[in-house]
Design a protein around this nucleic acid. Structure first.
Lengths: 111, 111
DNA sequence: GCAATATTCAACCAACTGGTTAAGTGATTG
DNA sequence: CAATCACTTAACCAGTTGGTTGAATATTGC
């Protein structure tokens, strides 16, 4: 799947949406509960969730009349990978970092 | 400095601006040269550069009548740090990763 | 079946975005 | 000095965004 960086970054550019993502980091939530801490209508939050959906940042699953929202970390990871070329780890030896990652992926949790 | 995540992500949401950043990864460039590969006016590119400036993603320095543009990686690093909580390294042992970073920062390039 | 709940849809609005062209501002060069 | 070059600003335009309210659509419980 080609990550739509336009949609991902545009979705992340709004503070309400970023806060929603942080909330979903804690736990999956219903739309109404996502909307609760915000001083805006449920319809507005529903639109924000649609934006996050289109960007692939969250997934939604309808059970009964409740739609559960959960993080979908793939899209953000893709965006993060795109960023890594820009000096994020400039103080770190990149080859060693890649070797570290390879080792971790070979024997996860073995460190 | 508090990174303005709104501005950084909004700036990254446009493909023209991302391409400009990639170009600047190669080398610092004058505004006219940044504009050359794009099928739009220099004025439009100048506006894109202003957006990247406001986001802190690039720096500009005027020498004579030429304004040189260079990457300023701090803002993107801040945004990247924000993202890291969202499962980016979920397949990786995070404690080991932090230890790796600490070691790298102690003895940079010694690996 | 009816009322309440959960969520979205539709229409609307003000503000912002990304582009245009034309004019303005400095710096350089002939 | 005058023309040119590098770049920004201003005014404008169409399309998008982020919010509103009110109606529509399921689903659930009494």
């Amino acid at each position: 799947m080609i990550p739509n960086l336009d949609a991902v970054f545009a979705a992340l550019a709004d503070p309400t949406r970023r806060q929603i993502l942080v909330m979903l980091l804690e736990d999956d939530m219903a739309v109404t509960d996502v909307a609760e801490p915000f001083e805006m209508s449920v319809a507005a939050v529903s639109k924000h969730l649609a934006v996050l959906m289109r960007a692939g940042l969250i997934a939604q699953e309808k059970r009964g009349r409740v739609k559960w929202c959960k993080l979908d970390p793939d899209a953000m990871r893709e965006a993060s990978v795109w960023m890594q070329g820009f000096g994020q780890f400039e103080a770190v030896d990149l080859d060693a970092f890649e070797a570290f990652l390879a080792q971790e992926l070979d024997a996860p949790g073995a460190a």
